[in-house]
Design a protein around this nucleic acid. Sequence first.
DNA 1: ATGAAAGCGCTAACAT
DNA 2: ATGTTAGCGCTTTCAT
Lengths: 376, 376
Amino acid sequence: MTRLVRPGGSPPTPRSVDVARLAGVSQKTVSRVLNDEPYVSADLRRRVLDAAEELGYRRNQAARALASGRTRSIGVVTLGSALYGPASWLMGIERAVRKMGYTLRVATTIEGDPGGIASALASLLDQGVDGVVISEPIDEGVGIISVDVPVLVLGAPPTFTAPQVVTARVGAGRLARAATEHLLELGHATVHHLAGPQRWYSARDRLAGWREALRAHGADEPPVVEGDWSAASGYAAGRELAGDGTVTAVFAANDDMAIGLIRAQLEAGRRMPEDISVVGFDDIPVAAYVTPPLTTLRQPFDAVARQGLALLVQVIEKPGVELPPAADPPVELVVRASTAPPPPRPIPEQGRRATPHPHGGPHGQPAGSEVPSTRP
Amino acid sequence: MTRLVRPGGSPPTPRSVDVARLAGVSQKTVSRVLNDEPYVSADLRRRVLDAAEELGYRRNQAARALASGRTRSIGVVTLGSALYGPASWLMGIERAVRKMGYTLRVATTIEGDPGGIASALASLLDQGVDGVVISEPIDEGVGIISVDVPVLVLGAPPTFTAPQVVTARVGAGRLARAATEHLLELGHATVHHLAGPQRWYSARDRLAGWREALRAHGADEPPVVEGDWSAASGYAAGRELAGDGTVTAVFAANDDMAIGLIRAQLEAGRRMPEDISVVGFDDIPVAAYVTPPLTTLRQPFDAVARQGLALLVQVIEKPGVELPPAADPPVELVVRASTAPPPPRPIPEQGRRATPHPHGGPHGQPAGSEVPSTRP
DNA sequence: ATGAAAGCGCTAACAT
DNA sequence: ATGTTAGCGCTTTCAT
């Protein structure tokens, strides 16, 4: 079938029997060697490998899958957009999948397509994947989906019925809490939240983390504004909030919305961060270079993907074994110039700490000067 | 193997024989129906489909692949980063692949890993893909790679030996020319170019398009500054160019670099766009909301992917058929507030058209007010 | 228009 | 430790 062609035409692709013949062993021995099974002498192993090398032999995966009932592939259901978060997850998953010796199949969904996850899943199951990863899941309201292979859900509740459902916690809640606390500790009386669409579990997590932090600090909980992840929705929210003079700090559920919000504030004549502080979420590539450079949170995409896939593969290969709870990766808050203490003027009833902006003006802290501070 | 489980336990997954038995036909007839082969009476077809439905039957792809020698899957080699361009290509490819009735397998490469493309390709070929897409190729200097399935290369020269190599032109060159012409037509004496890394074919295309436009207009060709796509590299370039008072217009090979460059200029005290105009490339989600809103170019990711995949699938399924040349999709220049006529002061020897900035100040044209103008 | 038989290239039991 | 024998579940010939 499909393999690298050797120079000088295309002789018929070799089979394992050909390798066996050349090595002077049985076909089964070839299979043993190639699968790293025990009970093969070093000598035969060498001869088989040499013969395989010489012929340019590669195993036929279709035949392997048919005979063994396993495809050694993992499917991922992901949103079909180039949004930074979903795309980063996908890349992290690919690396992790490959590291575990599996290959990756992808099926995308479209935002707003009801049943999209179910049909993407069906497509992957048709292809015979050994396990499935649901990245950035959305609550479609379609109830429980049944799948007969193990499922890894990145940061969401188990709405799947499967041999095993494992979850890798993204820690979005902890990150959101850290962001909110950062602002509270700067002296803001409270922090507004520009949330992501609440059909997304990750958006819910962030909102929950924000709420927890406010409660823990005894701060008022202002009404939540909900966006759709886009900078446009952040801009709209920014115009809305610009009318409210009491707003001094906003935690946006992603950087795009934060940037839209900042733009609206600047147009409304607000100074950033002297009048309003903003924290984003994701640390998109341009976050350090917008004006003002954005304080934001980094998600540990690769670490979580690796962790989750290790679990998934373990469940696939050794069903029934008890799983150790995965350790949460550290929270990374990247402090840049978009956050500062609140303005001294509108001290309503809480005026502790009023030192003016230690972070420099809106043009402070450009390239490379971000301070990745890890908070527990 | 892997399929949706019906409620109430897991009875053995049905085979095509089971369907045949239930429908009262031969197994071959089931196969005929499911493959849309001719010579099946409407009656039998109905009975087979009903039986399949009733049993929840799904074909075993491994068996199909083994028997037919085709996997009905297409592999894509892509850069393992969440950069907007590569991620957008990947999503476009996934949609196109699915639309053609194939499934997608992904193998990523790491920037700077020599031989990365070759090994990613080998992995896909091992998996038995029927065709391969190389997205955003990089010149690895590893010479010609031989592959025995058809290859689609998105916007690059044929450095592959394959049964067939098809190329879908991305049109980056035309886009770059349009960007450069836009600036020249605003009255700038010449346009500087902040290029992408020249190992990337797409970066070369953009540079070539820029150069063509300058030549066509008889403009001087200033030295090229090369970045690495990152905002940091754009910032560095911006500091460099900030020392040169003659620079009035820059075409950056992507938006991230443009944003970094703008930041450096602002820090140097330049006003945008009064002193310097900048055009980016990609129209990333935040492009309309940075300060100033970025004039940029949109690549027709989906259209090109669809077009290219149609070719690839045609080559896979009907080798030897002559291919019609694909029509170039239209160029989309999104004009926002980062471009304006040059400042009147440093008129060196060319002073035609000196109308000052009609686009409004740096805060003009925010949300939604972009003007997608299609230029031929 | 339909069916029977023969593999596809491997892995899995079962010898030895 | 190594080899032999059966399938895995389809798609292909080739009959009918």
